[in-house]
Design a protein around this nucleic acid. Sequence first.
DNA 1: CAGGATCCGTGACGATACTG
DNA 2: CAGTATCGTCACGGATCCTG
Lengths: 119, 119
Amino acid sequence: MAQENCLQDIELYKKRSLSLKDALELLSGKWKLVVLLHLYHHGTSRFKDLQEGCVSISPKVLSKELQNLEINQLITRTVNNTKPVTVSYAITEHALEIEPVIMALVEFGMKHRVKITAA
Amino acid sequence: MAQENCLQDIELYKKRSLSLKDALELLSGKWKLVVLLHLYHHGTSRFKDLQEGCVSISPKVLSKELQNLEINQLITRTVNNTKPVTVSYAITEHALEIEPVIMALVEFGMKHRVKITAA
DNA sequence: CAGGATCCGTGACGATACTG
DNA sequence: CAGTATCGTCACGGATCCTG
């Protein structure tokens, strides 16, 4: 019986680790969250706007981050039929679901900075 | 007036980015969260237990991760006066404050996996 | 304008061996 | 037992140039 609970614990634990890993992979990287914050704020943006939003990001890197975000369905990519082609990136509902979590991280980050610099 | 609000927005935005960056640096890396989950679960652990908990982590890497966590006051390190020296690592209250956030991440990770594998 | 191709430095992570 | 030392690898991010 105790054995059973223990095994369940281990399974739960493993599942959590994997889920956590998944979630972190979504957000890890130098720019993904900057992009997300920008899109949370603006709702939708073009490539160039994002490039200016992330000061000093190279187009290659931005492109890659955007592709990753699109694959994970956190943003959508739509090509506009304009003379010089423009592309719009927009936040998805799925991404909106993590917004509170991200904001919680922001809050903790602020608290943490205070705590660490005080010590 | 609108100008003022705009500037405030920019400041808030920058502050958020920085806080977020701080928070992520705490948790980023391949092993930090595995260690934290282990300690959330067990409360306190010795070096070897952690090493076995994180299957296939090298002592050097584990050591480095632990140092980092200690610097950020997420764990404490205490040396025990035993025959062969043992060291205990324990979770701090500060780390307990992020636990709900981490669990939120876990939850999102599970949802996300379902959503992605379905597509 | 959007972003792919190429080249490159750096740091994170790993394997193994060794010490107090 | 709890690490440190040393060496090696590889992917991430960056700089620059090029194209549809």
